[in-house]
Computed example of a mutant assay.
Amino acid sequence: MSSFLLRRVLPTSARAFSTSTPRSSFAKMTIIGRLADTPEVQATSTGHQILKYAVGTNSGPKDNQKTNWFKVTSFLPEGPQRDFIASLDKGTLVYIEGDASMSQYEDAEGKPRSALNIVQQKLEVLSPKKPQ
């Protein structure tokens, strides 16, 4: 077999699927759920302010539903967007997109627990507070 044909049949190097520089891995999440309480502004140890809230989602049949809770943090600067989110009522149905990470901690009784934390990238209000 000629060297020309051999080069056409046998690739000499693998092709990359991406031309961007490699980054560290990360996880993205999308959640649709209801606010567990009114979001609150908290000060960090560095003097910055962040917005923290929890979102609950339900799964399973109506007579045996399970609720999952997600802790969400927003690093939005002071302004209309942050003020709008901070004014949302408990029970508001929201759509959240963000970066996810797991953390381990001990609860008040000393039992090991884990939590899924979300850093908000996008929030949309889908409906106001659920009627009572």
Rank of each mutant, 00 (worst) to 15 (best):
E109D: 14
I50H: 03
A108D: 11
P22M: 03
L88I: 05
G56A: 02
S2A: 11
Q49S: 07
V119L: 04
R15G: 14
Y53G: 05
S59I: 11
E97P: 01
S2P: 11
W69A: 00
S114V: 11
E124P: 03
L93C: 08
R82L: 09
E124C: 01
E106Q: 09
K130H: 11
V72D: 00
Y95W: 03
G47C: 04
I31D: 06
A27E: 08
Q120E: 03
S25G: 14
P11I: 05
R82W: 02
I96L: 02
T67G: 02
L116E: 00
P77L: 07
F75P: 01
V9F: 08
Y53R: 02
T21D: 14
L51V: 01
N58M: 15
V94I: 05
K130R: 13
G110M: 05
W69L: 01
Y95V: 02
L5F: 11
P131V: 03
T30W: 01
E109K: 15
M29F: 09
M1G: 12
S2R: 11
F26N: 02
K28D: 02
S127G: 06
L35P: 11
I31M: 03
Q49N: 11
F84V: 00
L76V: 08
N117T: 04
K62P: 15
L93A: 06
D99R: 08
D63V: 13
Q49C: 00
K130V: 12
T44S: 00
K52M: 01
K111Q: 12
P61D: 13
D37P: 00
R34F: 12
S114D: 03
A54T: 13
P39S: 07
T46H: 13
K129P: 08
S20V: 13
A14Y: 10
M1H: 08
R34D: 09
N64W: 04
L116W: 03
G110F: 05
S18E: 09
S45Q: 15
Q42L: 06
N117R: 02
I96D: 06
E124W: 00
G47V: 02
P61C: 10
Q120A: 08
L5N: 12
V9A: 05
T19H: 15
V72I: 07
A108N: 08
T73W: 09
L93G: 04
S3L: 14
Q132T: 14
T92A: 04
G60T: 10
I31C: 02
G91M: 05
S101C: 05
I85T: 06
L126F: 10
P22N: 00
D83L: 07
S74K: 02
T21K: 15
G47E: 03
N64M: 09
R34H: 13
P11S: 04
G110P: 10
T30D: 11
G110W: 01
R113M: 14
T30A: 10
T57W: 02
E40V: 04
E97G: 04
G91Q: 06
S103H: 03
F84W: 12
T92I: 05
A27H: 06
K111Y: 08
P112H: 10
H48M: 08
G91W: 08
S3Q: 12
N117A: 06
E124T: 10
T44M: 00
E109M: 11
R15E: 12
K111A: 13
K129R: 14
Q49R: 15
G56H: 05
V55T: 05
I96N: 03
V125P: 07
